[in-house]
């Protein structure tokens, strides 16, 4: 039996079904069996991907399932390295984590646990009241999975044993090891901004599992994640200018269920070869120093060009 990915590409073969996962998946496949209809309906495709996430208790379980369905995946050869070259940027959605969901500032599509839902509600209400602060203001790196919704430029460097993904913002680099290695051993683990990513190739699809991440926010007024967050991503270049990624986020303390989103990145036209990703200096201009106010909002610390700021400095404030 062949599982058709929503884009119509055969995803994997089910040689045998095990446990409730297989049964649940079979049920969902039956529901979307006439794939032509599903392909024409993005919401149906999204529902199918969401269901796939729900059928697995953890990101690791989902990753192992996908790996099994891919027969363990294939080692990429130099002859088959896909062309992901060029300078990309996020296709749509601004910086909302779900590019197909509501705009930033309204409730996102995730289902949070009560505590994190309450915290999200406060940030959404505060934002409407003009109160908002982002740790990025003081150069705390965004990290993954927020990395997925960063604005500005991006590039992807694919080699057989490693794929490197670079976001211009915060010069943030992700390294995805595809040489067959496992995650860092338990005893050597510690959280980092972009975590530890391993993956495998299944045809033209790069499947990634990431763990050992740090707590952060998906974006301003988009909810928060904890150090327990883990993700599964399936990346694929779908046409000459578009790379898409199916993303499942698991984070039991914060998410009541996995958050599925479809991320999309577009290669920018650059006929004059002017686009470059250059070093992004977070501290490149003192006029950008932003502090958190007592109310939890944001304010410039000292603007260098105003009399008012000159006076504030004189007051020792």
């Amino acid at each position: 039996m062949s599982i058709n990915w929503p884009n119509g590409v055969a995803w994997a073969r089910i040689s045998r079904r095990t446990s409730r996962v297989g049964i649940g998946l079979l049920a969902s496949l039956v529901l979307v069996a006439p794939m032509a209809g599903a392909q024409a309906d993005p919401s149906a495709a999204k529902a199918k991907m969401k269901a796939l996430g729900l059928q697995h208790d953890s990101a690791w379980d989902l990753y192992q399932y996908l790996k099994k369905q891919a027969g363990g995946g294939q080692r990429l050869t130099w002859q088959k390295v896909p062309d992901w070259g060029g300078v990309y940027t996020r296709t749509k959605g601004g910086t909302a984590f779900d590019p197909d969901g509501p705009s930033q500032g309204t409730m996102p599509t995730a289902k949070f646990t009560p505590e994190f839902h309450k915290r999200l509600m406060k940030t959404v209400a505060d934002r409407k009241a003009g109160i908002e602060y982002d740790p990025l203001s003081q150069c705390v790196p965004p990290g993954h999975p927020r990395w997925l919704d960063l604005p500005f430029l991006r590039e992807h460097i694919v080699t057989p044993d490693q794929t490197t993904m670079i976001a211009e913002a915060f010069n943030s680099v992700r390294r995805i090891y595809t040489d067959g290695r496992d995650h860092v051993p338990e005893e050597d683990r510690y959280p980092t901004e972009n975590g530890d990513s391993i993956g495998f190739w299944d045809g033209d699809k790069l499947v990634i599992h990431t763990n050992q991440l740090m707590a952060h926010m998906y974006e301003r007024a988009q909810g928060e994640y904890t150090e327990q967050v883990e993700t599964v991503e399936v990346w694929r270049k779908v046409d000459d200018r578009t790379i898409e990624a199916d993303v499942w986020v698991y984070d039991p303390p914060a998410l009541a269920e996995p958050w599925y989103t479809k991320q999309s990145y577009t290669k920018l036209t650059d006929p004059d070869k002017r686009l470059r990703i250059r070093h992004w200096a977070c501290k490149g201009n003192p006029n950008n120093d932003v502090i958190e106010t007592r109310e939890g909002g944001s304010d410039f610390k000292d603007l260098t060009f105003t009399d008012k700021d000159d006076n504030r400095k004189g007051d020792g404030k």
Binding site: L136, P151, A169, S298
Partner: peptide, 10 residues
Amino acid sequence: PGAAHHSGSM
């Protein structure tokens, strides 16, 4: 739009 560094709430 898209400010990666800080909120525009000021």
